Simulated assay, not measured.
Amino acid sequence: MFLKTHKTASSTVLNILLRYGEKNGLKFALPNGRNDFSYPATFMRMFVKNYRPGACFNIICNHMRFNAPEVEALLPSDTFFFTILRDPALVFESSFHYYKSVIPLTWRIHGKDKLTDFLNDPQIHFDSNGFNSFYLKNLHFFDLGFDNTLEPEDPLVDSAIRAIAERFQLVMIAEHFEESLILLKDALCWQMDDLLFFVMNTRRPTSVSQLTPELRTKAREWNGVDWKLYRYFNATLWAKVNAYGRKRMEKEVKKLRQRNSKMAAICISGGMAVEYQDIRDLSMRPWQPVGESSILGYNMRSNIEQQYRVLCRKMLTPEIQYLTDLGVNLWMTRLWGWFKTILRL
């Protein structure tokens, strides 16, 4: 079970899992009508497509607000649970940019640099009861099913971290993505080729706000619970790396990078991600934030050898399209997409 957190390279992990599940004939618990499990509602097993009492699945990996008992009811008792975290300052920057058009709290900020204005005095701008306000404070703690308005010193935060550590056998760290994947491979007895990936849902560099050291500190302080969570699990990750062996890890990461570089040369036209409007195959264009086209995608080479064509296509397929290929009727997501297109006109 992969808890897909927001703004953490989780879409890249999702692509890995979808390919692995397909390749090995595993049974997915998929959402119904949209690409998440009715987020931000707390997960319920009835959110699963075609759920029937007693149903058992192998993989759950779409966005949800975690609810351990409901998730556990769908999976074998020996299921491996993992998730991924990222520096909350960077999560905040990315979330603020991506969701600001659907967070009314940000509409009242009139300066040119809304993110800086918010961080300079967040108490003025934030209201925990505001629509979609969870995107602006301790988003990962919220994703994990806890109260995102708690302060870091609250004993409930420490008990929540203990509960997370007990439930999740691995918490990946986005800043150490490849090391995290190697630990995942080791835990699940995967092969190196199971880890192959292209980074999905990257943003155009000019759309990324470069946080000054002062703003980074303010973002971490504002998201203090997520910062505490991140530091705890960053330490646990490196404890696992040390147990695995630093030299051994370096060799494995090098192998993974070499394999990914080889696949990029085989699959990607031009070898890198391109702007949304430059993606030639319209069916391969990724989902975009409201009113923008800042998420990059890929062009697939046209002269790929037969043995690589299917793999290349799947590695380059964005989440929405991949879920459609798996049989999910994303009518709600597509309706929202149509509405977003109207807003861009």
Rank of each mutant, 00 (worst) to 15 (best):
F57E: 06
R259Q: 13
V157H: 12
G21N: 02
R257F: 14
F92K: 07
H140Q: 08
F118P: 09
A68F: 10
R162T: 14
K137H: 08
F96D: 00
D278A: 10
H6F: 02
W287S: 14
M249T: 02
F47S: 11
N329H: 06
Y308I: 01
F168C: 05
E250P: 08
K27H: 14
R216E: 08
E252I: 07
Q169K: 09
F66R: 03
F134G: 09
W107S: 11
R203D: 05
E178C: 03
L229S: 03
S94R: 02
R344G: 11
P205Q: 11
F92Q: 05
K112S: 12
R246F: 13
Y244E: 05
P76H: 11
A174R: 00
L256F: 09
L181W: 00
S159Q: 08
N67Y: 03
M284S: 11
R162N: 15
R65K: 06
N242V: 14
Y232K: 02
L170G: 07
K137W: 05
K228D: 00
R231F: 09
R203T: 10
R285S: 07
N24C: 03
A265C: 13
T333N: 10
A264C: 13
S180L: 00
A68T: 05
I268Y: 10
G111N: 12
A89M: 06
D281G: 04
S180I: 00
G54Q: 10
E250R: 12
I173H: 01
G130D: 05
R220Q: 15
Q277V: 07
P213Y: 01
S159K: 06
A73H: 04
S10L: 13
N303E: 10
V91E: 00
S180Q: 09
K7T: 01
G291T: 12
S38C: 05
A243T: 14
S11Y: 01
V290L: 14
L215W: 04
L144P: 01
M263S: 08
L184Y: 01
L136R: 15
A89S: 15
T317F: 10
L256V: 11
A273T: 07
K114V: 10
R259G: 08
E305T: 13
Q210C: 05
V171Y: 01
H176R: 06
Y232G: 02
Y232H: 02
L335C: 11
N201H: 10
K185M: 14
G33V: 08
M249R: 00
F57M: 00
K254L: 07
D194V: 12
S11T: 13
V171P: 12
M64Q: 15
N329C: 04
K340Q: 11
F37P: 07
G145M: 15
D226A: 01
Y51H: 04
M332S: 12
I342A: 07
G130E: 09
M263L: 08
L282N: 02
K262E: 15
L156F: 10
F66A: 10
Q277D: 06
L282A: 09
R86E: 07
D325Y: 15
L237M: 11
I173C: 02
N260W: 15
P88A: 02
N223F: 07
F177N: 01
F37Y: 12
L26T: 09
K218P: 10
G130I: 03
N15K: 05
N129I: 09
D194W: 13
K240E: 03
H176K: 06
